[in-house]
């Protein structure tokens, strides 16, 4: 029998919610371990091995020590998958990139002397692909369990994962939701990558853009819509800050 691919799960600065989404597959985890060996998954297992084929990496990179650890992981792995918004694009961790690290540190830790303490040696938040090459992306905050399954099965079968490149509106319309704009809310759905089954608008909440923008926030069409719905550019700027701060280009081809 062919040897099962060895999979390791790692986390950096994040809430570990995406790993939890994997645990939340419940009994389907057993299906997963029928064709892969999970050799490292700190959140749920004690065993650890540095011999793995696939690394699933969650979280953003904040410190030189994290960078070094990530490079180590990359050097062991044949395939590296970035899991969730923090890993794929920096996620909420990039909100603080609006300010310089020193400023943020002072804001949070006051005048405490943290010089030389590497635990606190933070730089501007980076997504995984700003440090090492990434082979596959699983978007979302948190990730969608079905999309995780479809990406993993695609990789196992050797096909290209089917990640939508159209906006959330497509899925939102299929769910027959009332448009958030019609309800007076401001929604990033029209410019955000689908794949989440439009879960937020389906629960009557506007899209926050956690899967990344596929259109720039300052394109003509966005301006047109803002004007039509009497929204200020400041609204969209602030809303885009939550997940998409500092992302200049749309992530169409990731």
């Amino acid at each position: 029998m062919k040897q099962k691919p060895r999979v390791a799960v790692f986390d950096f600065a994040d809430c570990e919610g995406c790993e939890l989404q994997i645990a939340n597959l419940e009994e389907e985890i057993l299906d997963l371990i029928s064709f892969v060996d999970i050799v490292s998954f700190r959140e749920v297992m004690k065993e650890h091995s540095d011999s793995y084929d696939i690394a699933i990496v969650e979280g953003s990179i904040m410190r030189p020590m994290d960078e070094e650890r990530l490079r180590g992981i990359r050097s062991h792995a044949k395939i590296l998958i970035a899991l969730g918004a923090c890993a794929t694009m920096g996620g909420v961790n990039k909100i603080r990139n609006q300010w310089m690290p020193e400023e943020v540190k002072k804001d949070v830790y006051g005048d405490a002397n943290l010089k030389g303490n590497e635990l606190f040696d933070v730089f501007q938040t980076k997504a995984i692909n700003e440090v090492v090459p990434v082979d596959y992306y699983i978007f979302g905050c948190p990730i969608d369990r079905d999309e995780f399954k479809s990406v993993i099965t695609a990789i196992a079968l050797g096909k290209k994962p089917d990640i939508p490149r159209y906006p959330v509106c497509v899925e939102c319309k299929k769910n027959e939701n009332i448009c958030q704009f019609e309800l007076g809310a401001f929604c990033l759905g029209p410019i955000t990558r689908a794949g989440c089954k439009a879960i937020c608008p389906t629960h009557n909440s506007p899209c926050e853009g956690c899967r990344g923008l596929i259109k720039k926030q300052d394109t003509e069409c966005v301006k047109e819509v803002l004007e039509r719905y009497k929204l200020s550019y400041e609204d969209i700027r602030r809303r885009c800050t939550m997940y998409n701060y500092g992302r200049k280009e749309c992530s169409y081809d990731e």
Binding site: Y166, V170, K173, E220
Partner: peptide, 13 residues
């Protein structure tokens, strides 16, 4: 089409 969001909503509904 300069202001089209390419969201596909028109075809979905």
């Amino acid at each position: 089409s300069d202001v089209c969001m390419e969201c596909g909503s028109c075809t979905m509904v």
